Amino acid sequence: MPSLRELPLRMPEPPPPQDSAVRWDRVGLDRYEVKASGTTVGFIDVVGAVFVVLRGARYDRAVEVLQTLDFATAVQSICPAVTEPQASAGPSRT
C-alpha cells in the first residue's frame, strides 16, 4: 500500500534537555513514561508510526487522549501547561 510507505520511520526519541520540567523515559520497547516536575503524568505508546497518548499516573488506569504522528504534540497533550509558553497577561496598569 503506497500510503503506508509515506509514514515516518520511528526511532527512539532522544532524551529531553537536563533542565526540562517535562521528562520522558523509555520504559519498554514501544512505551515512554512522561513526567512533569518528577511526577508521572502519562504514557506514550508507539504503535507503528502512531504515538498513542495516555494521561494518568498509572498505566493500567491511564486514559487515551490522543493519537498523533508527532512526538512533541504527544508530550504537549499530556502536560500542556508545562510545555506551552505562558500567555501574556496583557499590559500592566500601574
Rank of each mutant, 00 (worst) to 15 (best):
L66V: 08
A21F: 03
G48N: 07
S37Q: 01
A89D: 06
E6K: 07
P16V: 11
R10M: 09
A72D: 08
L69Y: 07
A49Y: 05
F43D: 02
R61T: 13
R5Y: 15
A87N: 00
Q86A: 13
R58V: 05
D19S: 15
T39V: 13
D25N: 08
R61W: 00
A74P: 02
E13I: 11
S20G: 01
M11G: 07
P80D: 10
P2K: 05
P16I: 11
G42K: 10
R61P: 00
W24E: 05
V63E: 13
Y59V: 05
L4I: 06
T94E: 13
Q76W: 01
A72N: 10
Y32W: 06
L7Q: 14
I78H: 00
F71E: 01
V34S: 10
P15C: 08
D25S: 09
P12Y: 07
E6N: 02
K35C: 07
D19I: 13
T83H: 04
Q76N: 13
C79N: 08
T73V: 12
R10D: 03
D60R: 06
L7G: 04
L4P: 00
R26K: 10
T40C: 07
V65A: 04
P85V: 03
D19Y: 14
D70E: 06
L9I: 11
D30A: 15
P15E: 12
M11S: 14
R58A: 13
Y32D: 12
S3V: 14
A74M: 04
A72Q: 06
V82I: 11
D60G: 00
R23N: 09
G42C: 09
R61V: 01
A74E: 02
L66E: 13
G42V: 07
F71K: 02
V52C: 10
R10N: 05
V53E: 02
F51V: 09
G38E: 05
V82F: 06
T40A: 07
G42H: 08
C79G: 01
V53S: 01
A87W: 00
P80F: 12
V34W: 08
S3E: 15
S20D: 04
F51G: 05
P91V: 04
Q76H: 12
A72H: 04
R93K: 06
E33V: 14
T40F: 03
V34C: 10
P15V: 11
Y59L: 15
V46N: 03
R10F: 06
I78P: 00
P14L: 15
V34D: 08
V65H: 03
S77E: 14
A49V: 07
Y59N: 09
V63K: 14
